[in-house]
Deep mutational scan, measured.
Amino acid sequence: QLNAMAHQIQEMFPQVPYHLVLQDLQLTRSVEITTDNILEGRIQVP
């Protein structure tokens, strides 16, 4: 299920590496919260 959620987020934010999306999802278990984390700059994109 997390993989499906990660792919959904990757479609919206292809610039964010998959492993970072998955790592955040493991903590949040939420597409909405992880999306917010990306938008708020809480996930550092190399």
Rank of each mutant, 00 (worst) to 15 (best):
Q26I: 14
S30A: 04
Q44S: 12
H7I: 12
A6D: 00
S30V: 03
I33E: 10
L27V: 12
Q1W: 15
I9A: 00
P14Q: 04
L27N: 10
E11H: 13
T35I: 15
Y18V: 08
Q10S: 13
F13K: 00
Q8F: 13
H19D: 13
I33C: 08
T28K: 00
Q1T: 14
P17S: 06
N37F: 03
Q15V: 06
Q8K: 14
L25K: 01
V16P: 04
L2N: 03
S30E: 02
L22H: 04
Q26R: 12
E11F: 12
Q10W: 15
G41S: 05
L22D: 02
P17E: 06
I43C: 05
R29H: 13
M12D: 05
T28C: 05
M5R: 05
F13P: 00
L2E: 04
P14L: 04
R42H: 06
P46K: 10
S30Y: 03
V31S: 07
L2M: 09
P14V: 04
L39W: 06
I33G: 07
L25P: 00
L25G: 00
E32W: 09
R29S: 08
D36T: 15
E32P: 07
Y18Q: 07
L25F: 03
H7T: 10
E40Y: 14
R29W: 15
L39I: 11
Q44A: 11
Q26M: 15
L22F: 09
Q23T: 08
L2P: 03
P14F: 04
D24A: 04
A6K: 02
T34K: 00
Q15T: 11
Y18K: 07
E32V: 10
P17Y: 04
V45D: 09
R29M: 13
I33A: 13
M5I: 08
P17A: 07
F13H: 06
V45K: 09
T28P: 02
L39M: 09
V31G: 05
E11K: 15
A4F: 13
V16Y: 09
N3I: 15
E11I: 14
I9L: 10
E32N: 08
E11T: 13
F13L: 03
P17Q: 05
Q15H: 15
M12S: 08
G41M: 06
T34L: 00
Q1D: 14
Q8Y: 13
Q44M: 12
G41T: 02
G41E: 04
I9P: 00
Q15E: 12
Q1A: 12
R29E: 08
L39C: 09
H7K: 15
Q23D: 07
G41L: 06
H7E: 10
E11P: 03
P46Q: 10
F13I: 02
R29Y: 12
Q44E: 09
V16L: 10
V16H: 04
D24W: 07
T34N: 00
S30G: 01
H7Y: 13
R29A: 08
E11L: 15
I9M: 05
Y18T: 06
D24H: 03
I9K: 01
L20V: 08
E40S: 15
G41P: 01
T28Q: 02
M5F: 08
I33L: 12
V31K: 09
H7M: 14
I33P: 01
N37A: 03
P17C: 10
P46T: 11
